[in-house]
Amino acid sequence: MRLRREQVVSTALRLLDEVGLDALTMRRLGQELNVQAATLYWHVKNKQELLDAMAEALLSDCVARAPEGLTWMDRTANMAERLRRALLAHRDGARVFAGTYVTQENTLRFADTWVGALREAGLSPRAAAWGTWTMVYYTIGFTLEEQALAPLPGVEDGKVDPAHLRAALARGAYPHLGEASTHLLDADLDARFRYGIQLILAGLEAAPRDEPSDPAPEGPRPRRQPRRNR
Rank of each mutant, 00 (worst) to 15 (best):
Pro162Ser: 07
Leu87Asn: 13
Val96Pro: 10
Glu105Gln: 07
Arg27Leu: 03
Glu81Leu: 06
Leu83Phe: 05
Phe142Leu: 01
Val63Ile: 15
Ala117Trp: 03
Pro215Tyr: 01
Phe142Arg: 06
Gln36Trp: 13
Arg192Glu: 12
Pro212Asn: 00
Ala38Thr: 14
Asp112Cys: 05
Met1Tyr: 02
Arg14Cys: 04
Leu83Gly: 14
Pro153Val: 10
Ala57Arg: 07
Glu146His: 10
Trp130Ser: 09
Met79Phe: 09
Gly20Ser: 04
Val8Lys: 14
Leu87Cys: 10
Arg224Lys: 02
Leu59Ala: 07
Pro215Arg: 02
Arg171Glu: 10
His43Gly: 01
Arg126Trp: 12
Ala180Pro: 03
Gln48Thr: 09
Val115Asn: 09
Gln7Met: 01
Gln104Ser: 10
Arg126Asp: 13
Tyr137Thr: 10
Ser10Val: 03
Thr139Ser: 15
Thr113Cys: 04
Ser10Asp: 09
Lys45Glu: 11
Arg28Ile: 05
Pro175Tyr: 08
Leu149Asp: 12
Ala66Asn: 08
Met1Asn: 00
Ala129Ile: 07
Arg95Gly: 05
Arg65Asn: 08
Ser181Met: 01
Lys45Met: 04
Tyr101Gly: 14
Arg95Pro: 04
Glu49Arg: 11
Ala64Arg: 03
Thr134Val: 02
Gly30Cys: 09
Val63Lys: 11
Ala216Asp: 10
Arg194Leu: 06
Leu189Phe: 15
His183Asn: 12
Pro222Gly: 10
Arg84Trp: 04
His90Gly: 03
Ala163Leu: 15
Asp92Phe: 13
Gly116His: 00
Pro217Val: 08
Gly69Asp: 02
Val9Phe: 11
Leu189Lys: 12
Ala111Glu: 12
Arg85Trp: 13
Gly30Thr: 02
Arg109Gly: 06
Pro162Phe: 02
Ala94Lys: 00
Ile140Gln: 01
Leu87Pro: 13
Thr143Tyr: 00
Leu88Cys: 13
Glu179Ala: 10
Pro125Ser: 13
Pro175Trp: 15
Val9Trp: 02
Glu6Phe: 11
Arg82Cys: 09
Leu108Gly: 02
Ala206Leu: 09
Asp188Thr: 06
Glu211Gly: 08
Asn78Lys: 15
Ala98Asp: 12
Val155Gly: 01
Arg14Glu: 08
Asp190His: 11
Val35Met: 01
Leu51Tyr: 14
Arg2Cys: 03
Arg65Leu: 15
Tyr138Trp: 11
Ser60Met: 05
Ser181Asn: 02
Thr107Cys: 06
Asp112Asn: 09
Arg126His: 13
Gly158Thr: 00
Pro153Asn: 02
Arg75Asp: 15
Thr113Met: 09
Asp188Met: 07
Glu6Leu: 15
Pro153His: 09
Ala80Tyr: 05
Ala38Ser: 11
